[in-house]
Amino acid sequence: MGQDAIAPPNGITHIVWDWNGTLLDDNHANLAALNQVCAEFGRAPVELEYWRAVFRRPLLACYEELFGRPLADEEWARLNQTYDRHYSSLLPSCRLADGALQVLTSWTGRGRTQSLLSMAAHRHLEPLITERGLTRHFTRVDGRRHDGAHDSKAEHLVQHLEAQGISPSTVALIGDIDDDARAAREAGAHAVLVATGLMSRARLEATGHPVADSAAEAVAMLGD
């Protein structure tokens, strides 16, 4: 059952962008990496729409449900290594989401600020943003620098905003899964979700937060 609908926020002066599935169009790379993991663990491959219907954080619980059994620590480590290796091999084929660059440029041109926060490992994320020439758009770029207790973006968002001295009430987090909405709520920020990543529109709408079909539409929901 969905939560009561939350109106699009007003008075937003700072956007915190998610990366995978939001600014980066990488569903095909995620699915290919997932199915390589499935092959190694003796599970039949899955289709994207199935994965969008079941994907969630914490990731360990999600994968244990996918395989129908608990995963030992060494299996979990091997799973992540396999996934990361195959995903990384496909990164060159991943383009920015449609209109993403224009949206980043336009928001800055309106005299407002934006930053990037991803649950991808920081050591992998930072050079990727630099290589794509995107650093200039962001006041700060943070990937996952440590593993949190609950495998959620929430504590990372709090730290991300505190490091910049930004009031959460002026912030909209734009992301593609329900954990982005949860993170914004726990941090005291707002959220707009985009139905372009690893979670279906129906599941995003169930959070009660506004849902857009693109990054550009998400920003348009923030008003003037």
Rank of each mutant, 00 (worst) to 15 (best):
S88Q: 15
L101S: 07
T139N: 04
V103D: 07
R112S: 05
L59K: 06
L90V: 03
R123S: 13
G148I: 02
D98P: 07
A100C: 07
E74F: 02
G133P: 01
A149L: 14
L101N: 09
A97I: 02
K153G: 08
M119G: 00
R69P: 04
G109F: 07
R56I: 02
L91H: 06
R112H: 11
S118T: 03
T135L: 12
P127V: 04
H122C: 03
L59D: 06
E65S: 11
R144G: 04
T139S: 14
L96K: 05
R95E: 14
R140K: 13
E131G: 10
G143V: 02
Y63C: 07
V141A: 00
A121E: 13
H122W: 03
E126P: 01
A100F: 09
S115I: 06
F55E: 05
T139Y: 01
T130L: 11
F67V: 06
Q114K: 04
A120G: 13
K153V: 07
Q81A: 15
E64R: 01
P70R: 10
R95D: 12
E74M: 02
G133E: 01
N80K: 13
P70T: 06
G143Q: 05
R52Y: 08
R57S: 08
R145P: 03
T135H: 08
L101H: 13
S88W: 03
